[in-house]
């Protein structure tokens, strides 16, 4: 078993969320997802966001991942206010600095495992085909799917698919990995293995991990737990 991630590798705040508000409309109703939430993540930190459904976990991950914009407040990534980034710069930031792991894996069904993992690297003109291949093979090996590289996603189990998603998130060598309920569609044993894998990769690669979950059993495996309720942090 992998030991829980402990202290961050550097003390400075790599991700800083300052008094962020975010509302969205659900039909006729306005939902206030975040109500002045603040949070700091250090480089290399492994953090779980815990909260009930609708507490604002996914909204926070979307904002930190440059997938959405806050109504108020600031989000600083490595010191840069993401509000000042153009759409193109946000795309580049997502590609180069952030890895995403989704609850439903979000693999492309017409691409095999290797090609799915390779996908974000297709935007990297500076990588030669040989370097690209080496990176993909390494990422697939790191998640223990070396022998499945040419399998189609629909031939894999849920846990294997999520490993592919993790490999895809890490293949770009990001500074930050965001995972929204990555274990929600997995059985508890597979979920535990997956968290262990993420912790292991966090320690090996010094990548900052922020993932959301409502599974309390997984809490023992992570160093830092941030609890969110009604759009604000209640415990960190």
């Amino acid at each position: 078993m992998v030991t829980p991630a402990t202290a961050p590798l550097a003390a400075e705040a790599f991700v800083r969320v300052e008094e962020v508000h975010k509302s969205y409309r659900l039909g006729e109703t306005e939902v206030r997802a975040l109500r002045g939430l603040s949070l700091e993540l250090s480089r290399g930190e492994f953090t779980a966001l815990v909260g009930a459904s609708g507490s604002g976990k996914s909204t926070l991950l979307n904002l930190v991942g440059c997938l959405d914009e806050p109504d108020r407040g600031r989000i600083l990534l490595d010191g840069r206010d993401v509000a000042h980034l153009s759409d193109e710069e946000k795309s580049r930031t997502r590609n180069r600095s952030i890895g995403f792991i989704f609850q439903s894996f979000n693999l492309v069904p017409v691409l095999d495992v290797f090609e799915n993992v390779e996908l974000p690297l297709l935007l990297r003109d500076e990588l030669s085909p040989v370097e690209r291949r080496a990176r993909v093979e390494q990422a697939i090996a790191d998640v223990g799917l070396g022998e499945f590289a040419r399998q189609w996603p629909d031939k894999l189990s849920g846990g294997q698919r999520q490993r592919v998603a993790i490999a895809r998130a890490l293949v770009t060598q990001p500074l930050l990995v965001l995972a929204d309920e990555p274990t929600a569609n997995l059985d508890s044993e597979t979920a535990a293995h997956l968290i262990d894998l993420m912790v292991d990769l966090n320690q090996k690669r010094a990548v900052t991990f922020l993932f959301s979950t409502h599974d309390e059993k997984l809490m023992v495996r992570v160093a830092r737990v941030v609890r969110i309720r009604d759009g604000v942090t209640v415990e960190s």
């Binding site: 997502r94 590609n95 989704f102 979000n106 996908l119």
Partner: peptide, 16 residues
């Protein structure tokens, strides 16, 4: 639609 969202999340721009 969701796949297009995934492409965008992975860094692909609208033009891509």
């Amino acid at each position: 639609t969701r796949e297009i969202g995934t492409w965008r999340a992975l860094g692909f721009q609208r033009g891509h």
